[in-house]
Design a protein around this nucleic acid. Sequence first.
DNA 1: TCTAAATTTAGAATAAGTCTAAAGCAAGGA
DNA 2: TCCTTGCTTTAGACTTATTCTAAATTTAGA
Lengths: 144, 144
Amino acid sequence: MSKFSEELAQAFQTVSLRPTAQRYAVLEFLARRRVHATAAEIFDALNRDDPRASRATVYNNLHSLAKAGLVREVHGEGKAARFDASLHPHHHFVCETCGDIEDLPWFDLPPGFSRSAAGKREVRAYEIVFRGVCVRCRGTRGVR
Amino acid sequence: MSKFSEELAQAFQTVSLRPTAQRYAVLEFLARRRVHATAAEIFDALNRDDPRASRATVYNNLHSLAKAGLVREVHGEGKAARFDASLHPHHHFVCETCGDIEDLPWFDLPPGFSRSAAGKREVRAYEIVFRGVCVRCRGTRGVR
DNA sequence: TCTAAATTTAGAATAAGTCTAAAGCAAGGA
DNA sequence: TCCTTGCTTTAGACTTATTCTAAATTTAGA
């Protein structure tokens, strides 16, 4: 068993979610990708090889994985939600030109920032979303 | 002319967007509200009094206002996008229990944070999204 | 006033995501 | 091992959010 699949198996363990073939395939697909995928892309990809998965199953699993914290739902420019494996914490960058979403390395807010901002609310998580122009789109500046 | 409507008029000026009756109504509605509205809610509200606006117009204006930076699109728990006037900068808090989205007072990231995180990307804006349990939902804890 | 460009409209069309009811599996106890 | 119970999967119909279309209207500026 590779380091990689061990890590996935481990992840299922710690959140105590049944590692069904389809659920595993969804998480694996996301964990291998750099660019964030829409549910439709995941559906298409899974149905090129075994195990297959129905549309409903893809959504079911994206939701159960998100609830368990192994996957995050991110919204960029388009109307379809995008998903990424969040095995390791990170922030996000949304390109306003091409709509792609990229991961940025994690850093904590200075202690006290979130507490004072949130008042009496209970903060369970946070992320910073940066918007702007990605490296690829900066390169083609003016060409359009 | 009230301070408030002056501010809206001013906002249209500075981004040089035509202040049509419908567009003004959309922005005004959002600026007066505390809770973030879906397009459907805005559509319903506008069609209770003049000026009316068709569904397409509501969306057109939400998009033109968003592009101009006067409105922000935020995604909470539900599938419909929510919008808020962003005349003044702020961060967001999404309640994982009831799905409501609240504004948090703005604070800057410590200088250097965003620059080093984003690498060669051009950052035009950022926001911090906190998730957790809002004050109202904390109160009803355990009742369910 | 006149013109060109932007805006509005109703309704049809598309797309994203959810629901349903039946059938298949997985985990743990006897 | 064999049940039992509760997750999970499935195809496809369905709902709902958002976009598109083409014609009519309004706006800003010359």
